[in-house]
């Protein structure tokens, strides 16, 4: 018990003193996750909107794949990307392995299905009368689509935040493709795993507190968004 209290005290000391290494790790974590999320949103929201509004052959297959993608095991994503980016892999010539870029790509792969599938679900749930109303008020097809996306905004935002929650907390994929190199690819979750292994609990605990705080903030935001607007199927 005493060792736990001691570790907790040292963790708080690290947080209060804004230790440089500690801040660098948090900063890289946020940079990687937010970059991955922005890219996932740029591609995922329009694709989700398209899937939510258009009926075409094979649409259901795409939706099933996306829903499956929501539960992709991060280590499996890491493994596939490792094989792609390793020197003998098909994309080895890009020299991306053990770089923050590879970590962003890994987290993009994890966030993209979540953002897309939840955007699609929110857009599908928009009352068809909204589409007709926009049309009868003189909206062009593009304006109608924008109106539907706007109506689904709370659900879409909830999907984006759920995606952030997923990537901030994952460790498997970025550990494999990032390599957990100090000062270069070391992020919160990989540091926690490593420092716990080494028995260096104070840094792990300090990062754990920050990670929990971020997770709490994400979930609080998600709760208020869901309360305010269109529901999204977040489980």
């Amino acid at each position: 018990m005493e060792f736990l209290i001691e570790a907790f005290k040292k963790a708080l000391f690290l947080i209060i003193n804004l230790d440089r290494e500690f801040l660098e790790i948090i900063s890289l974590s946020l940079k990687v996750s937010i970059s991955a999320l922005i890219i996932a949103s740029i591609f995922g929201i329009p694709l989700g909107a398209f899937l939510g509004m258009k009926k075409f052959p094979g649409r259901n297959v795409v939706i099933v794949f996306l829903n499956t993608g929501m539960g992709l095991p991060p280590v499996v994503v890491g493994l596939f990307l490792y094989m792609l980016f390793s020197r003998s892999g098909p994309l080895g010539f890009l020299y991306l392995l053990y770089t923050p870029t590879a970590m962003i790509i890994a987290q993009f792969v994890l966030a993209f299905p979540i953002v897309t599938a939840l955007s699609q679900a929110s857009i599908t749930k928009v009352d068809p009368i909204i589409k007709l109303t926009a049309k009868t008020l003189g909206a062009t097809p593009f304006q109608v689509a924008l109106t539907i996306i706007k109506e689904a905004r709370y659900g879409i935002l909830a999907g984006v935040i759920a995606g952030l929650g997923r990537v901030m907390a994952e460790v498997g994929a970025i550990l494999i493709v990032g390599g957990n190199i100090a000062g270069y690819t070391r992020v919160m979750t990989t540091t926690i795993a490593l420092e716990t292994d080494k028995g260096n609990f104070e840094l792990a605990l300090a990062l754990g507190i920050i990670l929990l705080t971020i997770s709490f903030l994400i979930n609080t935001t998600l709760y208020f968004i869901q309360k305010k607007g269109v529901p999204a199927n977040i489980t």
Partner: peptide, 10 residues
């Protein structure tokens, strides 16, 4: 066209 159940934007 005004529908019986008015389509209300959020």
């Amino acid at each position: 066209y005004v529908f019986p159940e008015v389509g209300i934007f959020n």
